[in-house]
Design a protein around this nucleic acid. Structure first.
Lengths: 200, 200
DNA sequence: CGTATCCTCAAACGATCGTTTGATTCCCGA
DNA sequence: TCGGGAATCAAACGATCGTTTGAGGATACG
């Protein structure tokens, strides 16, 4: 495997496990089986490596989210559940794809850290996704004030980030096929979030 | 102010802002206006200081939660909303008490970090609180399977932790009295969480 | 006044951090 | 086959980390 890929994989795992400050480049390069200097050679700095870890996964994740949303946005028979599925299902697919679940933990960490640099990077690059989803929720919940809507979207985001960071018990039982388990998880999350969004 | 108190206050603020690994004892003691060696003298180590930051706030927070829960647990006319209020209101009171809101950010960080030592400490010392609340939810939602119930309690916990860590917009408008703002926030959170818990 | 106890202080400990350097190896196109 | 950029390597840079030390100051009690 190319050196850059091995570094990104090890970085994802160690950032998830020990945080951005807690994972050192020496641990990281040792886990990847590459030389210590390789990070600065290929990425320039540790901060740029962190951004690249986000870019690689979020490009794919948000691409799928936007594609799913485009299919239903503005349509007359679209439901809250449809929009939530467009947001949640791509994330669940990622969680079950190789080390993707580790990335959801990295993402949960990024939310918990209130680091301004990282927040600005995420907002600049992927803020439009949240805005599109919020706009569609607004269309389907026209009776809610803007403040009410933001509140509920924020609570939904919190619940989903928490759940998908693996803190909860998204653990597949051995007798349930992976495909079926993913569908069940999606149903749980969508049912819960839809009830919260639609509450009177 | 006593040295120990000044250290705990500065620690709470810097742990919230930079994380447990990101905040150094040199920053911390400088902010507190005490000598570098004071941390190890009064607390023994940085890890023990971290535990003390949690203990100080959680003793008070969970004490109030348990007291509120005892008043309604097992009563025939208790509602989901009552139980949620017993869980949420003490946390909101803490959030509006001095540097208490910073502690909610520390707590959110602790959830995001999957650090085993910290998790064990929190579970050993305060796990009984979550078990009591879960038991009461189980009584009020008898139609839910144990798996369903755990799922929903976990999602509620995630949403509330997220919201109260200040990532959302729990920001009081200047023309709203603090007491009223706290009540409004509690209403938002309780309505959302109750809808999620009770969803069919 | 003497002294015992609690506390503070500057200084230093060894370890580890992210980053840089300069030499060496690899590999492909001319 | 040979030249040259790309990639890897061991080693070192200065800075910062948590922790420890031992001397000195403060305070209370005989």
């Amino acid at each position: 495997m190319p050196t850059k890929e091995r570094i990104l994989g090890a970085a994802e795992e160690l950032f998830a496990r020990h945080g951005f400050e807690g994972a050192s480049l020496r641990q990281l390069t040792a886990a990847a089986g590459v030389n210590l200097a390789a990070v600065n050679y290929h990425f320039g700095s540790k901060d740029r490596l962190i951004e690249e870890v986000f870019r690689r996964r979020l490009d794919q994740l948000n691409g799928r989210r936007m594609a799913a949303l485009q299919k239903i946005a503005g349509e007359p028979d679209t439901t809250i559940e449809n929009v939530l599925a467009a947001f949640i299902v791509p994330a669940l697919e990622l969680s079950h794809d190789g080390n993707g679940s580790l990335f959801m933990r990295v993402l949960a960490r990024a939310f918990a850290e209130h680091d301004d640099t990282l927040r600005k990077f995420l907002s600049d690059n992927y803020g439009h996704v949240m805005r599109q989803f919020t706009a569609e929720f607004a269309r389907l919940l026209p009776h809610l004030s803007k403040e009410e809507l933001y509140w509920r979207v924020d609570l939904v985001t919190g619940a989903l980030t928490h759940a998908m960071s693996g803190f909860g018990m998204i653990q597949r039982k051995s007798d349930v096929p992976e495909q079926r388990h993913r569908e069940q998880t999606a149903e749980h999350l969508i049912r819960f979030a839809a009830a919260g969004l639609k509450s009177p």
